[in-house]
Design a binder for these strands. Structure first.
Length: 490
RNA sequence: GGUCCCAUCGUCUAGCCAGGCCUAGGACACUAGGUUUUCAUCCUAGCGACAGGGGUUCAAAUCCCCUUGGGAUCACCA
């Protein structure tokens, strides 16, 4: 019963792409690539109240950012178009009529009030919740009359007796007793079909061979399996992925921090790191390799290796991984990706950046191993852009500088020495060597020279090599800052 | 509460399916050293887990059962 591999990701555009949603997308995509199948995108926009075009676009954009590509979808089309669920409604309605004609669904005239009452009664009696099947017992003549009279009604699926079984690739054999599954609403009183119905219609029509999705759908699956049987359609395979959890161990939500992919993108996480980290939540390449590429993922991804238990989203490890990707990347690319953050922070304009590309790359090369996200760069290098007079001395930096009683004379002497050195040219290494000599001649301990110096130049207690900072700043600003420091540190 | 799912260091995980190679491996975090003018990086070491109880077996983290704990879901939302 092998059929072509066709998998899908079917987000509903009612919000930004959630990181808990990006992972199933990623796994489906990897699975399709691994098996030479098709990965398609279907937009489940059947809730007009909450769906927006903006969200839809943002979701597509987010997926592309991660490097996930689809062969069929709303923007690229495909043999099973349309890929907007809302545009398939006539087909859904037709399928609903088919099921009615087969006697597998029946009209339900129960009012919302009665349903509410029923639920309350069941709750109070601690009975099983769910529809009691009142309208299922109506005789066909009565039903026909009431429908003809235009009485509002929903269409409910008539769940048969017995049990429903299916195999889950992650959880193994599953079995649900049908009497635990209520006669659920298939078509609303306004004529619009519900999720559990349309999702099956579309998955059948689009010949989906495997449905891989979050565990929250596991309990919906028997309803859907029953529908496949009713339609006489081939059952797809199922795989229910473990949930991504917040630190409270509950399903990840806005409550426990940033959950949208966009948030991490804005913060400057490398997309490769996001992909890698998302994979690591529930799947591992091996017991010892944390960092791996998408190619390695695709070459090794097996559903059976996916964990059953939910994974707590650990932002610390995520940040570590982001930093790891940045450190391993080239200066050129890190600079390129940091650029928008620097512009957004108002430090440089795009033109500045273009005009001083070499200088900026040099800045990045010295900060590359200190940042974990591209977004961390601006705050670290702001001192390079502020007016010399407005440089802020950090508390620690100033304390370190003031520790040395000879700071003013040291600064003054060093400034005089440096002025000559800078005029002569030379790289940071040469300056560093020269400064060592200066230090010896002046009988200074290293901190006596470098701590006041660092404070004067950057105002930070830590950062890149001081002599690199001098070159980054340039002669004029360096000397000016040393001058100012002699007043400010007095 | 009903139904369903799950259970290895604080966290992510390897090992489990095909029981012995496990004195349970790796990573993040944390701690202590080393390298560095500082910070970061890098290196070394340490801390730290098979939820509990029964079985099966010569042998169980691995198989079975129970308990406990956690989670998902109970819409005319997707």
């Amino acid at each position: 019963m092998t059929r072509p591999v066709r998998v899908r990701f079917a987000p509903s555009p009612t919000g930004k792409l959630h990181i808990g949603g990006a992972r199933p997308a990623l796994f489906n995509w990897a699975y399709a690539r691994r098996h030479g199948g098709v990965f398609l995108l279907r937009i489940e926009d059947t809730d007009p109240e909450r769906s927006t075009k903006e969200y839809e676009l943002a979701i597509l954009d987010g997926l592309r950012w991660l490097g996930i590509h689809w062969q069929e979808g709303p923007d690229v089309g495909g043999p099973h178009a349309p890929y907007h669920q809302s545009q398939r409604i006539e087909r859904h309605k037709q399928r609903a009529r088919e099921l009615s004609a087969m006697g597998r669904a029946y009209p339900c005239f129960c009012s919302r009030e009665r349903l509410e009452e029923l639920a309350q009664r069941q709750e109070a009696a601690k009975e099983r919740q769910g529809y009691d099947g009142l309208c299922r017992r109506l005789d066909s003549q009565t039903v026909a009359q009431r429908v003809a009279a235009g009485e509002p009604h929903t269409l409910r699926f008539a769940v048969p007796a017995g049990a429903t079984e299916f195999h889950d690739h992650i959880r193994g054999p599953m079995r649900f007793e049908n009497h635990e599954v209520e006669d659920w609403v298939m078509v609303r009183s306004d004529g619009n079909p519900t999720y559990n119905f349309v999702v099956v219609c579309d998955d059948i029509d689009m010949q989906i061979s495997l449905i891989m999705r979050g565990e929250e759908h596991l309990i919906n699956t028997p309803k859907q399996v029953l529908l496949y049987h009713a339609f006489g359609a081939a059952l797809p395979e199922f795989a229910h992925l473990p949930l991504m959890l917040g630190t409270d161990k509950k399903k990840l939500s806005k409550r426990t921090g940033d959950t949208s992919l966009q948030d991490y993108r804005d913060k400057g996480f490398p997309p490769e790191a996001v992909v890698n980290f998302l994979c690591l939540q529930g799947w591992a390449l091996s017991g010892s390799q944390e960092i791996f590429s998408v190619e390695e993922l695709v070459a090794n991804f097996e559903i059976k290796d996916v964990n059953k238990a939910g994974a707590v989203f650990d932002i610390e490890k995520f940040l570590w991984m982001a930093g790891e990707y940045i450190r391993r990347d080239s200066v050129e690319r890190v600079a390129e990706r940091c650029a928008p953050h620097v512009v957004r922070a108002g430090l440089m304009s795009a033109e500045d950046l273009a005009g001083r590309a070499d200088w900026f790359r040099s800045v990045v090369s010295h900060e590359k191993e200190r940042i974990r996200t591209y977004g961390e760069l601006p705050a670290r290098i702001e001192y390079l852009f502020v007016a010399d007079e407005k440089l802020v001395y950090g508390e620690d930096a100033e304390k370190n500088a003031r520790r040395h009683a000879n700071r003013l004379t040291t600064l003054s002497a060093f400034r005089a020495w440096l002025e000559l050195q800078l005029a002569a040219g030379g790289d940071a290494a040469a300056l560093r060597e020269g400064a060592k000599q200066f230090q010896t001649e002046q009988k200074l301990k290293t901190p006596e020279l470098l701590q006041p110096l660092r404070c004067a130049l950057s105002g930070h207690a830590s950062g890149p090599d001081t002599f690199e900072v001098i070159l980054l700043l340039g002669a004029q600003r360096t000397l000016r800052r040393l001058e100012l420091a002699q007043e400010r540190l007095a």
